[in-house]
């Protein structure tokens, strides 16, 4: 019975998915469609989620938006130091620089909608937004990875990457289960200054990691379409059960300011020594960031917390 189901599923998959793009192939995307004669060799990615996806598939883009920013904020998967051109900022890339690189595929999001017709003049443009209202970011990131896998004729690699992410999540969940660390909800925050934090909301990418790890998000409200809310630190105090996960980097001097503040020392999480600090992860990237967060988070929870950030 099981084998028959598998065969059946494989048949459906084979019918539903486009064959390897030997001849011209057409894909639907958010704002139209694109046709590729052959797998593209020269890709330009106009946001960091797309850059990440290309790198995960083993394809180094010829040009990316905000090259230095990627090195500083996203870091992993690593972008080679040489041979990748910067095409400008993520909100206003230089069309001329893009054209000069003669790409055969441009990957961008619906944020760039006003520039789409101009981008189409340069090369086939694949529009996919990981972040948009009412859409699960991880599902979108997954879809982007698989579709790019098809376009670039690297379907297996895409599936392998996703399988690896799922495996990691299961593994980390098991570690947490074993140590019995899933009980209390966690609040994932980036400190903006000593008074304000970005708290990652249930509609964000990180929720996927929390769900997979069997952890509850302490913050109950949906955030903006990037999946976070900017809140005053005192808003976290209402969630007395929560463990506090501070994502690096934190502003300079934060540790001292907080230590001096009776408010902070009375904060339930600080009183219980349940403040954890983890390495930087880019919250607005693609599927790979979920894996990184799961790794760091599990390690931090197993290592134990303290009463302050580092």
């Amino acid at each position: 019975m099981f084998t028959r189901l598998c065969v059946f599923a494989a048949l459906i998959l084979a019918m539903a998915l486009p064959a390897a793009p030997a001849a011209a192939d057409t894909w639907q995307h958010e704002n139209g469609s694109l046709t590729l004669e052959q797998p593209p060799k020269r890709i330009i990615t106009l946001n960091w989620a797309a850059t990440e996806a290309a790198l995960l598939l083993g394809v180094t883009p010829v040009g990316v938006a905000d090259l230095q920013g990627y090195h500083h904020w996203v870091r992993q998967p690593a972008l080679p130091e040489e041979g990748v051109a910067n095409v400008g900022t993520r909100v206003a890339p230089s069309l001329e620089a893009i054209a000069e690189l003669e790409p055969d595929l441009i990957v961008t999001s619906a944020e760039m909608a006003p520039a789409e017709s101009l981008l189409e003049r340069i090369a086939p443009t694949y529009v996919i937004s990981v972040y948009r209202p009412d859409i699960n970011a991880f599902e979108q990131a997954r879809k982007m990875l698989l579709t790019l896998g098809d376009m670039l004729d690297r379907r297996e690699q895409a599936e392998a990457v996703l399988a690896d992410i799922e495996q990691t999540l299961e593994h980390e969940r098991a570690r947490l289960e074993q140590a019995d660390l899933q009980g209390r909800p966690v609040a994932l925050v980036n400190f903006l200054d000593a008074r304000h934090v970005r708290v990652h909301a249930p509609n964000g990418l990180y929720q996927t990691a929390l769900d997979a790890l069997g952890l509850d998000n302490a913050w109950p409200h949906d955030g903006n379409f990037w999946g976070f809310s900017v809140v005053g630190l005192e808003a976290l105090a209402d969630h007395r059960n929560a463990r506090l996960i501070a994502i690096s980097p934190t502003p300079p001097g934060l540790r001292d300011t907080l230590a001096d503040s009776p408010f902070w020392t009375y904060l339930p999480a600080a009183q219980r020594n349940q403040v954890y600090q983890i390495d930087p992860v880019w919250p607005f990237g693609g599927a790979y960031q979920v894996k990184r967060l799961a790794n760091y988070l599990t390690d931090a929870l197993l290592a134990g917390g303290s009463d302050n950030v580092e």
Partner: peptide, 9 residues
């Protein structure tokens, strides 16, 4: 307004 909405500042 912050507390009535989704808590966002």
């Amino acid at each position: 307004a912050s507390t009535w909405g989704d808590g966002s500042l």
